[in-house]
């Protein structure tokens, strides 16, 4: 599904990713854990195609296609979704209008029919209930004045509506209370399936109580330094990242 091979990324003159390799087969959920500064956000930006985060070496294969070099919107249309650590506020753009515009842009790019206004309203109402956002929020400018938790719910709303092939969740758990963590777990677990993959980037183990990963990887110094089963997360929580920082 998503196969990263020997990925190198230099940002502002510093090499952050130094030969990262990772394979998330279809149907699996993998977690990446790592200390601050290990390259977690750089990994998500490089895979999603942000300006200034071009890979200098390596490949990112999404369902057999190397997506490096493709525009971010082309990657999105191929089914790649990034849940942002710090979602943007967009004043002057109504939430519903924006999400519908984005959904239809992706569908057009894939040669699929656009979703009508009426169908879209039904869809967004249903998914908003799932993520715990009331209808009034959908009519407001996108994320403007929303709390950190509400912005994360808005990310989960888009995840539920876009139904991407592969989702990267960049520290979605940061700043969330227990109820919101459970909601994130419910949304992801409902979408888990044989045709879909997830990469959960996190600093802490707590989200992994709600989303049980198939594999856990430790990212340190721009490389995956250890991989293991779900139990590795608990082990890290106990022993910390220090051993890996030194190893890296």
């Amino acid at each position: 599904m998503l196969k990263i091979e020997n990925l190198h990324t230099t940002v502002g003159g510093h090499e952050i990713l130094k030969g990262l390799s990772l394979d998330v087969p279809a149907g699996e959920v993998h977690a990446i854990m790592g200390p601050n500064g290990s390259g977690k956000s750089t990994l998500s930006y490089t895979v999603a195609g942000r300006d200034g985060y071009a890979a200098s070496e390596g490949a990112v294969m999404l369902e057999g296609t190397n997506i490096l070099g493709l525009a971010p919107d082309v990657r999105a249309a191929k089914g790649l979704f990034l849940s942002f650590q710090h979602p943007m506020e967009i004043p002057g753009v109504q939430t519903m209008t924006f999400i519908r515009t984005a959904l239809n842009a992706q569908r057009r790019a894939r040669g699929e029919a656009e979703v009508s206004a009426a169908d879209f309203i039904r869809l967004i109402r249903e998914k908003a209930k799932l993520v715990g956002l009331d209808d009034a929020k959908l009519k407001r400018p996108f994320n403007v004045g929303f709390s950190g938790g509400e912005k994360k719910r808005m990310e989960m709303l888009q995840l539920a509506i876009f139904e991407p092939r592969f989702a990267i969740m960049d520290e979605t758990d940061s700043g969330l209370d227990i109820d919101a963590l459970k909601m994130v777990g419910d949304v992801v677990n409902a979408l888990r399936g044989p045709e879909r993959g997830f990469l959960i980037i996190t600093h802490y183990q707590r989200l992994l109580h709600y989303i049980k990963p198939d594999r856990v990887h430790v990212l340190a110094g721009g490389r995956i330094v250890k991989s293991g089963a779900a139990g590795l997360a608990a082990e890290l929580e106990k022993s910390g990242y220090e051993q890996f920082i030194e190893a890296a």
Binding site: A48, G49, R50, D51, A71, P72, D73, R75, A76, A77, F81, L82, F84, P87, M88, I90, P91, G92, V93, F98, I99, T101, A102, L103, A105, Q106, A109, P141, Q158, F162
Partner: peptide
């Protein structure tokens, strides 16, 4: 705003559409 532009493009808007949306929002 480069952050906003990247956010919109990650959601599937091409560059022209993303820029247009932000300009329209600016004039809101």
């Amino acid at each position: 705003d480069a952050d906003a532009l990247f956010y919109l493009r990650q959601r599937g808007l091409n560059e022209a559409a993303a820029r247009a949306l932000l300009v329209e929002a600016f004039l809101g």
